[in-house]
Design a protein around this nucleic acid. Structure first.
Lengths: 193, 193
DNA sequence: TTAATTTCTTGTCATTTGACAAGTGATCGT
DNA sequence: ACGATCACTTGTCAAATGACAAGAAATTAA
């Protein structure tokens, strides 16, 4: 039950006193999942927020043709949260699934609400987390709209090379918005890694 | 100085008492801009949050080749905010510009902070606004990754037909991630509108 | 270990989209 | 009202990517 990774994550994002972080993370509990295991399933109403301490996971949706489209890739340490489902308490369209074995911390919506309204520093932290996530997503969208697949691949390779050692290429391909064959060809044309 | 549109916007998103909304919007002031006018410029640190009461605007970035890439389209009534610049107080990469004549309400970061920490309902509202914006952006990203340009065009046409009456097609094209000639061809192939 | 399954690569061909250039019509500023 | 600029369309051709299928390589399960 060593919460140092979790606690340090707060400090890394935001200047905040140790005692307050301890107070915030007090009610987090830990658990582990094997690889290829669903954390939040489609149509579920998410009632927990998760911190991924170790491992790799992804979220994806099923399109009209029932093909998997990877919507996000998660590399520890980071929070994993279906914002819409969690905060609006409505069913999610996405499936959140581990790719490698993962260890988590979780806490309930009630605890988040209590912290959000009672601890000013937690409010600031939550908002910052939103801002950062929004910004990452926006960067990805801009990339999708303005760069070709090869550039997107090279950017991911530069920013997150370790992803390629743990996540299947077909998952990465759908995250990049291309087919696995196209990704394979792009990799052939470049010198791979 | 009629704040009814602004006040109603709060009620439309969130069940909240009239008195509290009045308290929140008390320190908002109004102003107008002509068409094609910059609201927030690149490299600026945004110190205001804006509510677009009437009009159409967009945000865009300049890519490596100095081409404009439209990052968002704003249709009144809605909040307009560079989250990253406003909440982290750092320079923005984006340019926010009116497309038609626009009328706004604005308030300062100090007021937002004060409301955020003193009015629980405002906190909930702010978070909901984030959730909604995040969700919209995510939908757009998924669309970019998984659907072809024609489908994206048809979706926009269905969800926001009025956009096509006020916003130049070349702006819409770059928002959809295609060139203006491609959009023109897509429109020719379909029966337009 | 072996068989089954999944992942990755590659081939062929079609489709989508971009690059560039030209022309037309609309809009803007003076 | 004028010329200048801008927005949109269209043509031609090239490049990027997808669809489908087959096979190799890796992983998984019994």
């Amino acid at each position: 039950m060593n919460k140092s990774v979790l606690n340090n994550y707060f400090h890394s994002l935001f200047p905040i006193e140790k005692e307050i972080v301890v107070q915030i993370t007090e009610k987090f509990t830990s658990f582990k999942l094997h690889k290829n295991t669903v954390l939040i399933d489609k149509n579920e109403i998410s009632s927990k927020t998760y911190f991924l301490e170790e491992g790799y996971m992804r979220s994806y949706i099923l399109n009209e043709d029932n093909e998997e489209v990877t919507t996000n890739i998660y590399v520890a340490p980071c929070f994993v949260n279906d914002f819409l489902s969690f905060f609006k308490q409505q069913p999610t369209r996405e499936i959140y699934q581990t790719i490698t074995a993962c260890s988590f911390w979780e806490t309930s919506l009630e605890n988040v609400q209590s912290n959000f309204h009672n601890i000013p520093e937690f409010r600031e932290f939550s908002r910052l987390l939103f801002v950062i996530n929004y910004h990452k997503l926006k960067d990805r969208t801009i990339e999708m709209a303005s760069q070709k697949a090869e550039t997107r691949y090279l950017n991911l390779l530069e920013q997150n090379p370790n992803v390629f050692q743990h996540i299947p290429l077909k998952v990465i391909a759908s995250y990049l918005g291309i087919t696995d064959s196209s990704l394979s060809r792009i990799r052939k044309d470049i010198g791979k890694y």
